[in-house]
């Protein structure tokens, strides 16, 4: 009787490792090649997306520069020695055709009804106001939360006052969202009735970002006034 025929056939360990190793190498090559192949196009797409978003909130801007405001008060241009240290805030300076500062755009985020509402808002340093905002990403309910972009009463909130206090450390008045119809001050956001949570998220996102960013920009404004080459 043949004993070997009764023992179940087993695959040698070497064969398994060889196959897995070979396939991993092939797959690794494919992934790296596709990453390298699409890198330029992806970066270009990202740049265009940022530009389009900033031009939307600063309509007079013709070109933008990306800056980083560090916690120590330094404001550096990205790509010119500016590095992202912890706590640094990124913002965009928009310049008009003559190279004069048209506005500053920054991102803010706050919890909405479903997930974070990420917005981009434009700050007018001359008037000390938030001129307008747009939504970067939101999962708010269609037809309810997305009214923040079309509701006329809500858009009336802008320009929204965002002046700094005398010591330039914080905002003179915290930006708050108030119940629909009870707005009394220029720094308050009048909520949309029925979309209060999303309205509150917009107010909080602007307030948080402005509190962090504006005191750092204020002493450096002269540096930003003209487009640096």
């Amino acid at each position: 009787m043949n004993v070997e025929a009764l023992v179940p056939q087993t695959t040698p360990t070497v064969a398994m490792i060889r196959t897995l190793g070979l396939l991993s190498a092939i797959c690794g090559l494919i992934i790296v090649a596709s990453y390298q192949g699409t890198y330029a196009a992806v970066q270009e797409n990202k740049r265009i997306a940022v530009e389009r978003a900033v031009f939307k909130v600063i309509p007079t801007a013709k070109s933008i520069d990306e800056y980083i405001a560090s916690p120590d008060g330094a404001v550096t241009k990205v790509g010119a020695g500016g590095t992202a240290s912890p706590g640094a805030v990124k913002f965009y300076a928009g310049y008009d055709a003559a190279g004069k500062l048209a506005g500053i755009a920054a991102e803010g985020a706050a919890k909405g009804y479903a997930d974070n509402v990420r917005i981009l808002f434009a700050y007018d340093p001359v008037a000390g106001t938030v001129a307008s905002f747009s939504v970067v990403a939101s999962r708010e309910t269609p037809g309810i939360g997305d009214k923040i972009l079309v509701n006329k009463d809500f858009l009336e909130n802008f320009p929204l006052e965002a002046k700094l206090s005398a010591d330039l450390k914080t905002l003179a008045h915290e930006i708050r969202t108030v119940k629909h119809g009870s707005k009394a001050n220029p720094w308050e956001v009048d909520a949309i009735s029925g979309a209060t949570i999303t309205s509150r998220a917009v107010g909080k996102a602007i307030n948080d970002a402005a509190q962090a960013l504006l005191p750092r920009i204020a002493p450096q404004l002269d540096k930003l006034k003209e487009k640096s080459s």
Partner: peptide, 15 residues
């Protein structure tokens, strides 16, 4: 692997 390839391709086509 192929999902990653498609992922990059879509990023390159339209964000």
């Amino acid at each position: 692997t192929f999902v990653t390839v498609v992922d990059y391709a879509i990023q390159a086509i339209s964000l």
